[in-house]
Amino acid sequence: MNKKTKVELMWILGVIAVLAVSMVWNIMLVDNQSAEIAQADTGKIPTGPYVIDVVGRQWDWAFTNYTGNTTYDAFTVQVNHTYTLVITSEPNPGSTAVIHSLLIPQMGLQSYAVPGQTNVIQFTPTHVGAYYFVCVEYCGEYHYTMRGYMTVVN
């Protein structure tokens, strides 16, 4: 084994080692918080005071809380409660149901809104304030207007 081969081996093994560590770390973290990753609903849609139905439409977000009140492009949650978002996509009159994606960057929360599929995702706001959210899956002409603020209150 000459010096050149040694160097090559070193860099290959080094890269693999760094990767292995980050991979295991990634898997552990994700498994711990798998409820905070969008998953297609398996049949039973959760209900309760901390469940919010989210419907992406061309071109607004409709948030319905358990009392049946619907707000558009804005919603309010209470701090330190674990909320479940039930996200899907429906057509507005005269339009089509297309794929959207709800992103609340400050919460690290994202889920597609897919027609004919219900995605469930959980999050727990820990700070009071207003957080912006946007649609990040291109959905037509007024895609950029699908944005607003989530308000976290005490």
């Binding site: 005071p49 607004d60 809380n65 009140n69 707000t71 558009y72 309010t76 209470q78 507005n92 005490n154």
Partner: peptide, 24 residues
């Protein structure tokens, strides 16, 4: 327009925003 919300997308009427949760 089909419904008023589709035009004034970003106007949140105060009546639409109900308190969330019992204690708020």
């Amino acid at each position: 327009p089909a419904n008023s919300t589709s035009i004034s997308n970003n106007v949140v009427k105060s009546t639409e925003l109900a308190p969330v949760g019992v204690h708020s």
